[in-house]
């Protein structure tokens, strides 16, 4: 087992909200009791629908948002210092890459200045010469031409913009990148280029990645371990092959079948993700689960260890692994064939 570079324990985020005409107070639980480790140089993929709490988790790990409870440790050090601020050393160590390269780059700043901003603000390099030198190295690393430094973001394509965003992120030589949907705003043909670039950079600089995506194929291409989130909780978490090949949670199976190109393989799922303001009783997924039983509506399943390092929060995880019960599989089969 590799040393856990990033270690997240029981992380929870609750937002107080005021609803209705009378201003009734309620609590919105965006992320609930999340724990995972990322080994140094590894990639952890967070998958889930929109509204499942992926981005909130990332923002808490970056220190952009305070956690309600729980802890984050990076390289063995707690993220927040005693004053409740992000440890400055750790902040320099991690950098985000945001989803939309159209809003994450200031339209009035030239690419050179966008890339060298963290170097200036964190006073890592000084002198225009040294900064220009570093920017030119970074442009090379991400495969952009040298004259891009003087261009403005609106002169660049989506893929080029995301390369700029990546160059900016690796400028301060971080060890940990938080990639929040890094390719979801891009064309499929460009997605592969950017993902390959990220992989190359990872092996060159021993970077650790937290990758957030709703696209299972992106996550499976990039990750060593995967966590599947639904309504702020992990449904299933474990090594990539275990989670994807031997899924033991219906939600993972549904995500997998939705991503598959195989005609007729899609499992039935209906409706939208429920509101986190009034989450379903029992298992959060039971309202949409095709195999839901009585127990699912009353008792919330805990994450339980499977045989090969994967954890699954389903009452029937063992049965699913064993290919039982017949009723479940029948539902599965008819569900697939009935279409």
């Amino acid at each position: 087992m590799t040393h856990a570079f990033v270690s997240v324990r029981e992380l929870t985020k609750e937002y107080p909200v005021v609803t209705g005409f009378l201003g009734k107070k309620a609590t919105l639980t965006a992320v609930s009791d999340i724990s995972f480790d990322i080994g140094e140089g590894k990639t952890f993929g967070l998958v889930g629908e929109s509204g499942s709490g992926k981005t909130t988790t990332a923002r808490m790990i970056l220190g952009a948002e305070p956690a309600t409870s729980g802890s984050v440790k990076i390289d063995g050090k707690p993220l927040m210092n005693e004053k409740g601020r992000v440890d400055p050393v750790l902040r320099r160590m991690m950098q985000p890459v945001l989803q939309d390269p159209y809003t994450s780059l200031s339209p009035r700043m030239c690419v050179g200045h966008i890339i060298d901003e963290p170097l200036r603000t964190q006073k890592l390099l000084s002198g225009e010469r040294a900064l220009a030198q570093r920017v030119s190295e970074l442009l090379d690393m991400v495969g952009l031409p040298q004259d891009a430094a003087r261009r403005y973001p609106n002169e660049l394509s989506g893929g080029q913009r995301q390369r700029v965003a990546i160059a900016r992120a690796i400028a301060p030589k971080p060890r940990f990148l938080v990639l929040d949907e890094p390719v979801s705003a891009l064309d499929v043909s460009i997605q592969a280029q950017i993902l390959n670039l990220l992989k190359d950079l990872q092996s060159e600089f021993k970077l650790t990645y937290l990758l957030i995506s709703h696209d299972l194929s992106v996550v499976s291409f990039m990750s060593d371990a995967i966590g599947v989130m639904y309504l702020g909780r992990f449904m299933e978490i474990g090594p990539k092959d275990e989670v994807l090949r031997r899924s033991s949670h219906p939600y993972t199976m549904i995500l997998k079948s939705a991503a598959s190109t195989d005609e007729g393989a899609a499992l039935p799922i209906s409706g939208e993700i429920p509101s986190p303001l009034s989450p379903p009783s029992g298992c959060p997924f039971h309202t949409r689960c095709p195999f839901s039983q009585q127990i699912c509506a009353t008792t919330q399943p805990e994450l339980e260890a499977g045989p090969a390092g994967q954890f699954s929060a389903c009452h029937f995880a063992k049965d699913i692994r064993a290919g039982k019960p017949a009723g479940t599989c029948a539902t599965l089969a008819t569900g697939a064939m009935g279409r």
Partner: peptide, 26 residues
């Protein structure tokens, strides 16, 4: 609320810098 302001904050940019370099030009 735009991404570039968020990124600047996460790289320890001061409020003055964000206003002068990111808000005013825009």
């Amino acid at each position: 609320e735009r991404g570039f302001v968020e990124l600047a904050k996460l790289s320890d940019a001061s409020t003055t810098r964000i206003v002068l370099r990111h808000i005013l030009p825009n």
